[in-house]
Nucleic acid binder design. Structure first.
Length: 578
RNA sequence: GCCCCCGUAGCUCAGUGGAUAGAGCAUCCCCCUCCUAAGGGGAGGGUCACACGUUCGAUUCGUGUCGGGGGCACCA
């Protein structure tokens, strides 16, 4: 079997040799792209038009000169001048025929692009506060981040996935308080439950569990709890903070138990939910450890040494305006407590110190104003902020009965990721989440997603895979034996179209990695499935002459492999039967 | 007020500094004696929001305008 030669790089090298003769002085970048129309060849090159101005020559004339200088090649059928000066290159079928065996032989390595070069990359995503179940908004970040991590891995990066656990902030205190108040209700204490505390039933469940385990051990009287607390109607947040302060004072060391219980419970739930969704992490990084280990002090000190921190009104400020932010930011409040921002600075400095050449954060689009601040802080600490890339994911807006549904965790009125998965299935959920590019708002129509509709694109792709499996199972042979098939017999238009499509997979993976856009994989798979279905209807596989049968089975075996790997990147299963 | 995203077919959305701008859904017409019809083939449907600029060439890049969504805490 002749070794497979990538047609694109082959053509690029032919053109380069030709250009050395025609335009050695002003070698342009050689661009080869796939024309939309088959009549324009397999690849088109616009180099003549780019050169025409510098060389003061008519582009069509230049193109003619380039074509005349092209070295002989067994793979090139012909080269034509077209339109204003395109060079359209037509390849012989032989250029593609070897692809099937090549792809099958390479296996998982076939999709492996080359942009990554083993570079260490960290991707942090989801990182939702562990204060309640994940909702459908978190689901998009989870699906996007996990798919992107897979894309990067396939493209040759050394990827680490991390979840930042906000276990130290006010939100956790509110959850602990909410749980305790529900617990007090079970103890028979008449305490008003604040409207801005966590309303969800899971809070009551945790309270009931604590009550069952410890009975009235954490009971305090309603009067003590409400002591000195401002009226909720006048100052709702102050009301909450005063209740938290009372809880800490009244419970003493026991407060840590309630807090810890709620945290473990919710984090465990989140972890299970994500694992079931096919989303896993290598590390779970605790915000609390930043406070305890003194990393925040160190981070602020580091910025101070570079002269970017000052004191005003008793608070410590970071001069972020010096780094393009619109106003300076507080890092340590008047009350001596560090802000969330300060912890985040320490966290990002820590990420850099862990040896990643690139750090990727996946954030909700509402955090966009936060980017200059964090980047500025990294610069202020003397680090290269360009190593941090923030991928913003727009909101997934949920529609129920044609109406927007609320997704606030505190109000308790949201559709959980778990509910969504249960209703539409993991495959459809994962696929739909990444079908839109991340900058695009995602309208998730629950009713539509719930209805088991047949026009579902994920089924279309899975069906292509199942169809191949069906043929392969009827055949019953060993896949590896097909590698010796005579692929020169693959001449039908549908066969060649499929071969060309398969050849695009590695460059598609590279593009998806470069653009941080897993959705291009989804669109590629739709195209690949369409080519397979086209072939399936046009050609028979099993009841043809043995050599042709082998060649066609080789082709669909390679296609199956790419379908499976591609779906795997998106976290979608590739069923053998449907 | 400032900042971010979006504006492409009736709908939901891809896409590209190039040659006739695509897909799915919806509408209409055709294709199972045959390895899965959850499939295939065809038809209709467009001022790529608008204006100006950069360019040999702009739907793509830049600026502005209009429209939709989101964000601008000593919250996290």
């Amino acid at each position: 079997m002749t070794p497979y030669l990538d047609p694109k790089s082959h053509l690029a090298s032919l053109l380069e040799q030709a250009l050395l003769q025609v335009a050695a002085d002003s070698m342009p970048l050689i661009e080869l792209d796939r024309p939309k129309q088959a009549s324009h060849g397999d690849y088109a090159c616009n180099v003549a038009m780019q050169l025409s101005k510098a060389m003061k020559r008519n582009p069509r004339e230049l193109a003619q000169a380039v074509i005349a200088a092209l070295p002989a090649s067994t793979l090139l059928e012909k080269a034509e001048i077209a339109g204003p000066g395109f060079i359209n290159l037509f390849l012989k079928p032989a250029a593609w025929q070897g692809l099937a065996a090549h792809a099958l032989e390479q296996g998982a390595a076939f999709g492996g692009g080359n942009v990554g070069r083993g570079e260490k990359v960290q991707i942090e995503f989801v990182s939702a506060n562990p204060t309640g179940p994940l909702h459908v908004g978190h689901g998009r970040g989870a699906a996007f981040g996990a798919s992107l991590a897979n894309v990067l891995k396939l493209a040759g990066y050394d990827v680490q996935r991390e979840y930042y656990v906000n276990d130290a902030g006010r939100q956790m205190d509110i959850l602990a308080l909410s749980t305790w108040l529900r617990y007090l209700e079970l103890c028979g204490e008449l305490v008003a439950f604040p409207g801005n505390a966590y309303q969800g039933d899971y809070v009551k469940s945790m309270a009931a569990a604590i009550h069952a385990l410890h009975q009235t051990r954490y009971q305090r009287t309603a009067i003590e709890v409400a002591q000195g607390v401002p009226d909720a109607g006048e100052d709702a947040e102050g009301h909450l903070d005063a209740l938290i302060a009372n809880a800490k004072r009244l419970l003493g060391p026991d407060y840590a138990y309630i807090h810890g219980y709620a945290l473990e419970e919710q984090l465990g739930d989140t972890r299970n939910d994500l694992t079931e969704f096919g989303v896993t992490f290598d590390t779970w990084f605790s915000e609390k450890t930043l406070h305890e280990s003194g990393l925040i002090d160190r981070a602020v000190e580091q910025m101070k040494q570079h002269g970017h921190v000052y004191e005003q009104n008793g608070a410590l400020w970071f001069r972020s305006t010096a780094f393009g932010d619109e106003k300076d930011r507080v890092v340590r409040r008047e009350n001596g407590i560090y802000t969330y921002f300060a912890a985040d600075i320490a966290y990002h400095i820590n990420k850099f110190e862990r040896g990643f050449s690139r750090v990727l954060d996946v954030w909700g689009a509402d955090h966009h104003g936060y980017i200059p601040r964090v980047k500025g802080a990294l610069s202020a600490a003397g680090l290269d902020a360009d190593r941090l890339t923030v991928a913003l994911v727009q909101f997934a807006v949920l529609y129920r009965n044609g109406q927007k549904a609320s997704m606030s965790t505190r109000s308790g009125q949201y559709v959980t990721l778990r509910e969504l998965r249960g209703e539409v299935g993991n495959d459809a959920a994962r696929f739909f989440y990444v079908l839109r590019k991340s900058e695009q708002h995602l309208d998730f129509d629950l009713d539509l997603a719930k209805s088991q509709s047949n026009d579902n694109p994920v089924y279309y792709i899975q069906y292509a895979h199942a169809r191949i499996c069906s043929v392969m199972n009827s055949w019953g042979g060993v896949e590896r034996d097909l590698l010796d098939a005579d692929s020169g017999l693959l001449r039908e238009p549908q066969e060649l179209a499929l071969l060309r499509r398969l050849a695009e997979f590695p460059e598609t993976v590279n593009a998806a990695a470069r653009e941080l856009s897993p959705h291009v994989i989804a669109y590629y798979l739709k195209d690949l499935a369409a080519d397979l279905h086209g072939l399936y209807v046009a050609c028979r596989f099993l009841d043809v002459d043995e050599p042709l049968k082998q060649a066609r089975l080789l082709l669909i075996a390679a296609t199956r492999r790419v379908l499976r790997d591609g779906l795997g990147v998106l976290g979608v299963s590739a069923p053998e039967k449907m």
